[in-house]
Design a protein around this nucleic acid. Structure first.
Lengths: 226, 226
DNA sequence: CCCGTAATATGAAAATCCTGGTTATTGAAG
DNA sequence: CTTCAATAACCAGGATTTTCATATTACGGG
């Protein structure tokens, strides 16, 4: 299981890290709000453990921005020293799924983590998205079309990932650029080149095209010819 | 939202009931473990609030049996007076999603309930507008009249979208132009041409006309002949 | 009831904008 | 130093939007 720990206290972070790595999980760490948000939006995690008090950007803000910009479905467990109801409410309003007050027992953390991730696994929410005969594995970053492996560059992969997450929806060009180049929208129009190379790899060899362009708006991925 | 409360303490049950019914939710109550399990397995709830100490069958058992026999994905929030780690662990092991220790604030209960149910509701809503037998999907940008797909150009789609969002209202020509050409109102009168092409596609083939022109003012979309 | 004026509808041509594909340049990594 | 990926720049082809000229319809006064 991939877990992201956003926590500036090195002791707590290493405690959590050791505990969960011993259980066979794969951990990533961030020691500031900004770095954490960056990691969280750029990768897929099964769970995010987020401290409330952080340098740079506090946990509530990180949580809110993550929910706005990125994945709605990744569980977030918030960690904090404070135990006032107001803190809890603002945390939950920002999109937290659970709330644990320091000092806490690693055992309780583990069972809450387990409870949060259980539902996702029960629904078999796999890290692979399938549209028609196109498969994309979010963990291994492998893509196959008709069981034939396709090699994609990182940028192209992210674009395809977002298109597949929003299959059948028309994605405005601007939204797509916003998603891929989160904070640094480039000068020219590199999106076109990437779409082109994507098409060449996943659509060119097949009769059934999956990437459709909606003139004047953006792109749509789907097997239906609307 | 349908919530099942399994709690033998009448005071607590009625407090919870009143609080959530005021918020517009639909509550069912059970005062024993057996009755609770029966209700839970026989109906579909969005959430189950479950007391640990119950006559007949305790909360842990109810929880475990419910998870074994019935829905895996209904969130369960366990309520208890005891605050030992062992209790929490056994609760989570039985399949609880959250754990709240009495005495608790109804506000905290509410935010935790909200957090538990949020993810389930996160499933995307279609965003389709329907007027008579005319359907417009804002996500896929699909338009159908009498289940027959209609292909529209972006500008025409935007115009139809705005008309449908304000169905039955007379939209002054100026307002419509303002909406479609936000900052650059063109010289001539392209709106007329677009309305024309819209009519040709969605009204021409049908007896029941939907786009009506109001002389001197603008246009109105609706099935009623006012 | 008829007519003149103004508003709207219609159809096609023209102008504009958008996209796809290609190539060159830059930058990073091994 | 080499190689690969990412970005920038370009043009042609096509789709879309707009313009324009003309026909039709609605309204109000005589």
């Amino acid at each position: 299981m991939k877990i992201l720990v956003i926590e500036d206290d090195a002791d707590i972070a290493s405690n959590i890290g050791q505990y969960f790595e011993d259980k066979g999980h794969q951990l990533d760490f961030a020691y500031s709000g900004n770095h954490g948000l960056e990691l969280a939006t750029g990768n897929r995690f099964d769970l995010i453990i987020l401290d409330l008090m952080l340098p740079g950007k506090d946990g509530i803000t990180v949580c809110r921005e993550f929910r706005e910009k990125a994945r709605q479905d990744t569980p977030i467990l918030m960690l904090t020293a404070r135990d006032t109801l107001d803190d809890k409410i603002s945390g939950f309003e920002a999109g937290t799924d659970d709330y644990l007050v320091k000092p806490f027992s690693l055992l309780e953390l583990e069972v809450r983590v387990h409870a949060l991730t259980r539902r996702g696994q029960a629904k078999k929410l796999p890290a692979v998205i399938t549209i028609d005969n196109l498969e994309l594995n979010q963990d291994t970053m492998q893509v196959t079309r008709a069981n034939h492996p396709v090699k994609l560059k990182p940028k192209a992969f992210k674009i395809l990932e977002y298109l597949m997450q929003n299959a059948d929806r028309v994605i405005p060009r601007g939204e797509l650029i916003e998603q891929i180049w989160t904070d640094d929208p480039p000068e020219g129009d590199p999106l076109r080149v990437h779409i082109h190379s994507l098409r060449k790899k996943i659509d060119k060899p097949f009769e059934q095209k999956l990437i459709h362009t909606v003139h004047g708006i953006g792109y749509r991925l789907g097997s239906d010819d609307l």
